[in-house]
Design a protein around this nucleic acid. Structure first.
Lengths: 219, 219
DNA sequence: GGCTCATTTTGAACACGTTCAGATTTTTCT
DNA sequence: AGAAAAATCTGAACGTGTTCAAAATGAGCC
């Protein structure tokens, strides 16, 4: 029965997320998850390849949930720094209850690891995300030089990943430091992007474009 | 006996490093390490808090080994990009045989984790490292604006950490892509550092300085 | 040497993520 | 409906990092 199977899977995922929230990822046991979902330990492995894979399932789900929210955040022309801030704020608010859990994802910098934000497994998510930065850039009305244009969205995406990583481990109350960082760095980024239009910056632009080719090569 | 104890510790560390090199960190068992060192499993835990801690011990050791090599690399006034390249190259060559092992360190972005490059435990190493970038900067002869001066070495250190992370997971033959990246990004960094001296950049400089205060706050 | 105490070493035991041979349930086919 | 096949589920077992009570060894002292 297809529906019942899906329901069991959902029950395991829900149980896991509930426990992760309550007591953290490391502190939660696969046996606990299965028990909470009312199945045997092995059943959890029938639906998920690993404990990590549960987090990945949550991450997949989040991208679907976020799509309309991001759409809304992008609506209307805004200054670049506001567009970037809005995009990030949507994500931070969505992930707020599971902030620490994201650490389980962030821990895998190895592109070969299925959970890596830079890996093959997460490419579709990543590419859609990069595209949203292109739209922010577009609606900002800033004229971007031709040579930089293909690369800038991905640079902004990397910038955003850095901020999210900072946020995950931000121990200040209500992650106030991250909020400060978002505001301040947003202003800098906007300023720098505008500065790239100056003729003086042409060599830098070319160097950066060249650099990005190396970084993204077969990535 | 103090000397015998130190010898046992060294034997365990050596056995571990040998096995890590041969078959990788994850694939090596604490039981194997102990057996290779000729002790019982528990003995390894008498000398090291955890499997990770063995990597940390290697990392501590490496900083001692690297000091004279870095000293040498810094000798003589060079262009900034050459100084940066020399500094990085020394480290890459030293860590070459254990490149993948560093992934075990890089995996911990959480500053609370003892193995994190951003944590309290590794602060002394980090600060000494940041200082070496101040020296590279100095010997480059580039005049750095007052407001940026206290922050630039740390920014360069972060830049270097990014490169090392890229290198750890660089799957191109002989890590050729990293070498390309080092050369190209070095040129950009030098160019950007020089550009910061322009009066037009004063607002950006102030923003960056302000930003770095937020980032390094109680860190 | 014998006694005391700290240091070092042992190896069994624990909890964990994961696997797997088999039991049970559901679906498909006639 | 009944048999065969596929999907789902079970729980014991495996190998792992780690802990710990107890044994062995060493140091200091008389």
């Amino acid at each position: 029965m297809n529906a019942k199977s899906a329901e069991t899977r959902a029950r395991i995922l829900d149980a896991a997320m509930e426990l992760f929230r309550r007591q953290g990822f490391e502190e939660t046991t696969m046996r606990e998850i299965a028990a909470e979902a009312g199945v045997a330990t092995g059943a959890a492995y029938y639906y998920f390849d690993s404990k990590d894979a549960i987090v990945l399932a949550f991450y997949d789900q989040s991208q679907q949930d976020l799509e309309p929210l991001i759409e809304q955040a992008l609506a209307g022309a805004k200054r670049l720094k506001e567009g970037l801030g809005a995009l990030l704020e949507v994500k931070l608010q969505y992930f707020e209850p599971n902030r620490r859990l994201l650490g389980a994802l962030a821990a895998h910098a190895d592109p070969d690891h299925p959970l890596s934000p830079f890996g093959e497994r997460t490419r579709p998510i990543r590419e859609r995300d990069v595209a949203s930065f292109a739209r922010v850039l577009e609606s900002s009305g800033i004229r971007v030089a031709r040579d930089l244009e293909p690369h800038l969205p991905r640079i902004l995406w990397m910038y955003q990943m850095g901020l999210i990583l900072f946020w995950i481990y931000d121990r200040s109350p209500a992650q106030a430091r991250t909020r400060t960082l978002v505001a301040k760095s947003g202003a800098i980024v906007e300023r720098l992007v505008k500065l790239t239009a100056f003729p003086l910056m042409r060599p830098v632009r070319r160097m950066v474009a060249d650099l990005m080719d190396t970084v993204t090569e077969e990535l």
